[in-house]
Computed example of a mutant assay.
Amino acid sequence: MVTLNFIVDQLTAEVPGGIGRYTENLAREVIRRAPHDCDVAGITSFVSDEQRSALLDRLPGLESVRMSRLNRKMLSQAWRRGMFTNSFGGGLFHSPSLLAPLRPLESGDPAQVVVTIHDIVPWTHPETLTPNGVRWHKAMLKRAWQYAAAVVTPTHAVAEQVAELHDFGDRLRVIPGAASPDIQLPDEAAQHDIAQRFQLPETFILAIGTLEPRKGIDRLIQALAQPRLQDAQLVHVGPEGWGEVDLSSLCAAAGVDRSRVRNLGYVSDAELAVVLDRATVLCMPSLDEGFGLPILEAFKAGTPVVHTDVPALMEVSQGASLHVGLGDEATFVERLSIALSNVLGDSELRETLTLAGQDRQPIYSWAYSADLVWQLHADL
């Protein structure tokens, strides 16, 4: 029996985030689609018995959960320095992030280690991370260049960016994500209750993400100040603040009435499904992204999308959305407001975008991604 050691540590983080969602969905399908002579074990830092049981419940079919004696912070710093990389022995390892026991082959039990890098934000927008976070990502990517059997990216766009940082040759592979199957509409009564509780407007722009600068939420709020969007309402899913920035200060700076911008904070999968379903348009005004999962989630919900021409977003959407170029900074806010106004005011355009998105979304599936994981390790 061959065991694939899948690093599921992100699921134990205080805020699992997008990588946590990627980890859970990919791990489920990797387990479900394992070849008949293979099984999957979970690898984590030190966790409580309750956390260990929760992982087994969340990932049905997981053969076991193997724990380090180090907590999450200590393990990430140890592996960054090349320490305790033999603690789980040899064999096959797959990490849905850069956290992995990367080491020279001659250092102990031979191991085939594959890691994942979702974007190069630590290089392009280091101000959105802590200094320690930036140093950790840069050090781990360098270790991956030295010791990883392969490096996975979610898009060809990110693969090209990573190749400019280090020459990985043919070790770079693209394995995309997909819309989460957990984001499903509840029954009609629950939908009504959620919409009432959130006081969702009849027509609104939806934005998903933190307020960090690269997400561009500040410029989306500036677009609301344009005359053509003077009546538009924005619903934001995610934390209301980031650092010293919050929605109230962004609205004040843009001259936008704060009542036009509603923050929902963190929401459940069912709540997100309702918000996506009722949104008139999803907007991703990002300066940089590695994949663009909200686009696929909006496509699945039948919601039109407007986003920037970030290469990864263009790759995911493939013409099934409207995009606004980042090139001319001076006119970006105005052009964003035009694109959003066109969608809000044109039912035929919305219908066209909805159909295009629903045709595009099924191309991405976690089953396909899991098959690519098994094929990659077989090839190696």
Rank of each mutant, 00 (worst) to 15 (best):
P213I: 09
R260Q: 10
P104Y: 12
S107C: 11
D218K: 12
S248L: 12
H323W: 11
Q51K: 03
G292E: 04
V235T: 10
A190I: 08
T130C: 12
Q358G: 01
A190K: 14
R69H: 07
P104I: 02
G357R: 11
A100T: 02
G290K: 00
P35F: 13
G42D: 00
H236P: 00
G292T: 04
S337C: 10
R72V: 01
I221R: 05
L326S: 11
G61P: 03
L336C: 09
A298D: 05
V343D: 10
A100H: 02
L141K: 06
R52D: 09
Y22P: 09
V158E: 00
A78R: 02
A298T: 00
G42H: 01
I338L: 13
R258A: 12
S365I: 01
P110N: 06
G292W: 00
G133E: 09
E50P: 04
Y266N: 05
V2N: 15
S259D: 13
G108D: 08
K215E: 10
L276W: 04
E24G: 03
V158K: 08
A13S: 14
E212W: 08
R262Y: 02
V281N: 08
S248Q: 14
L11A: 06
V113Y: 08
R28P: 01
Y266A: 09
V261R: 01
G265D: 08
S337F: 09
R135L: 09
Q233T: 10
V245Q: 06
V151D: 02
V8Q: 08
P304L: 00
